[in-house]
Amino acid sequence: MHQLVALDDSEPGWAALEFACREHPDDDLTVVHAVDPTDSGYGEMAHLGPEGLLERQREAAEELLAEADERAAEYDCALETATIVGQPAEAIVDFAVENGVDRIVVGSHGRTGFSRVLLGSVAERIARQAPVPVTIVR
């Protein structure tokens, strides 16, 4: 089985990786991090420009995925990693479809009520759009 772990640098994201490594160590695991070029904080876009911002995000993604490799090694779990570009939910679902993924594992921040409406839920959008089963880990 080919499983895709969607990783952001959050506790729920790391919990999703640990779940996949612990529960499915013999499966083919691909860990992806979505780089969203429209997501800039504190005026980075104006300061760096779009190319500079994207390059900074890609560098941060490489560091995050290197850490994912290290954490997976603690479980004797081998990973493939990839950085994808786009709105996270859509980019993750597209990657899953294009790469024959059988299941998506994603962390959830567990937001409820107004904060969920305001901030949205990437995990929920993935679950609604994905053509394969999605495991949401808290």
Rank of each mutant, 00 (worst) to 15 (best):
H109P: 07
E63T: 06
L119E: 09
Q129K: 15
Q87N: 13
L119R: 10
A61M: 08
D27Y: 11
H47T: 14
E74H: 06
L29G: 10
F19A: 15
D69W: 03
L7N: 08
A46I: 06
R116G: 12
D102A: 11
I84A: 05
E62S: 00
G100P: 07
E44R: 03
F114M: 13
V35Q: 02
V106Y: 04
A66K: 07
V35D: 07
G107D: 00
G52A: 14
I104P: 03
P131V: 15
E55P: 02
A72M: 05
A130F: 11
P12G: 04
L54Y: 04
G13K: 08
E124R: 10
P133A: 09
E67P: 10
D69Q: 13
F95E: 02
A34Q: 03
A15G: 11
T38R: 10
S40W: 02
V132A: 12
D36N: 15
D28V: 13
A46G: 15
A130V: 06
A82L: 01
E51G: 01
H33A: 07
D36L: 12
R58K: 11
E124N: 10
H24M: 11
I84Q: 02
H109N: 10
L53K: 05
V134I: 09
A60G: 07
E44D: 14
T38S: 09
A78I: 10
C77R: 02
V32H: 01
R58L: 03
L54S: 10
E44G: 03
A123W: 09
G113K: 12
Q87D: 14
E44S: 09
A73D: 09
V132H: 05
G120T: 14
D26W: 13
D94K: 14
P25E: 05
A127L: 11
P37W: 01
L118K: 06
E124F: 00
R22M: 13
T38M: 09
R128P: 03
E11P: 14
Q57W: 01
G49C: 11
E62K: 01
A91I: 00
V31L: 04
I104A: 06
R111V: 04
D9N: 15
P133G: 11
E70C: 02
E51I: 00
G49W: 08
V32D: 04
D94C: 08
E90N: 14
V106G: 00
H24Y: 15
Y75E: 08
V32T: 01
G41K: 04
E80W: 04
N99A: 12
L48C: 05
Q87W: 09
C77I: 08
M45Q: 11
D26R: 15
Q87H: 12
F114G: 15
E80R: 14
G100L: 13
E62G: 01
A96V: 04
F114T: 10
G86Q: 01
N99F: 12
V85M: 06
H24E: 08
I92N: 00
T112F: 06
G52D: 12
P37T: 02
E55K: 07
D36P: 12
E80M: 12
